[in-house]
């Protein structure tokens, strides 16, 4: 898929593809839903093989940002570059090919409940085939494909569930199936939306360790949104804080908040701020005097 130095068809829209260029880049991306802005002029660049955690309160725009990267949310303004090419300037068929190489672990997992575990994982490659061949590969898999899925599930510790119906699995096991489906895509970019939201806190650490280890082993670029700043700080070398659709801090740029986050004490404070505070961004908050005036 990656052809370093190959001339791009839409060279006018995008810089030439370089092997050492960033894996993904957002340039002034805004997303508006009606009169509400989910993202406001977000610019972000992530190197190949990097692991980035997006933190921030609910409604900060984490999911919207991930959906932009996955080709599922066209920005109202700005551009999204994946592997050097403008994702949304592409023809639908080219976008589809690009999406086939982006693994996405959904917050609610979005597995097909009545299918077998193996079939849910096999569905990860549906983007490579036409309808009939894709369906055949999932519903009547080849022996070699099943062996590959089995090896993948072995690495995730659920190989014994290969032929189990997916909805019979525990929440933690289903989490691993969703991860297996994303990895079976052989992605270059792995996106995870609140991967530990449906897992109890004890297991959350295991899931994050697994996610970051697999991404590192496969050399994938990983972007995961997380509620828990502490968890992000422990396992991700880079943390981007979002709030009200605006990047508040980025540890890669050594901003004050980022530096503060490096110390455990301040991390706890930031954790309280970003995880619990669902208030609008500071610029949208009314002045204290206004509040007092309104209280009468």
């Amino acid at each position: 898929m990656d052809r370093p130095g190959a001339p791009m068809a839409n060279a006018a829209h995008s810089p030439p593809l370089r092997a050492d260029g960033p894996a993904l880049e957002l340039r002034g991306v805004s997303v508006d839903f009606g009169d509400r802005s989910a993202l406001r002029a977000v610019s972000l660049s992530v190197e190949r093989g990097a692991a980035v955690a997006l933190v921030g309160p609910s409604g900060a725009g984490k999911t919207t940002l991930l959906r932009c990267l996955a080709g599922a949310q066209r920005p109202s303004a700005g551009a999204v570059y994946v592997a050097g090419a403008d994702l949304y300037a592409r023809a639908p068929s080219a976008l589809r090919r690009e999406q086939a190489r982006v693994g996405f672990v959904h917050q609610d997992l979005a597995l097909v409940p009545v299918l077998r575990v193996a079939q849910n994982v096999l569905a990860g490659r549906l983007g490579r085939f036409g309808t009939l061949r894709g369906l055949a590969r999932v519903l009547a898999p080849r022996r070699a494909a099943l062996a590959e899925v089995h090896r993948l599930l072995e690495r995730l510790g659920i190989a014994d569930q290969l032929f189990q119906r997916t909805d019979r699995l525990s929440g933690g096991q289903q989490q691993r199936v969703a991860l297996a489906r994303a990895l079976y895509q052989e992605p270059t970019l792995l996106l995870a939306d609140e991967p530990v939201a449906s897992v109890d806190p004890e297991r959350a650490r295991d899931v994050i360790v697994l996610l970051t280890r697999l991404a590192r082993e496969e050399g994938l670029t990983l972007v995961a949104s997380l509620h828990d700043v502490e968890l992000a700080r422990e396992h991700f070398p880079r943390i981007v804080g979002l709030r009200g659709g605006v990047v508040q801090f980025d540890t890669a740029h050594g901003s004050a908040a980022g530096a503060a986050l490096a110390s455990p004490f301040h991390a706890a404070a930031a954790s309280a701020l970003y995880a619990l505070d669902a208030a609008p961004p500071p610029d949208a908050q009314p002045h204290a005097s206004d509040c007092e005036g309104a209280r009468e």
Partner: peptide, 20 residues
């Protein structure tokens, strides 16, 4: 939900509808 997830990973519409 599952059908949209399959469409997001590039599955053709008919395949995503059938498996979703």
């Amino acid at each position: 939900r599952s059908g949209r997830a399959l469409a997001l990973l590039g599955a053709p519409t008919a395949a995503a509808v059938l498996l979703g």
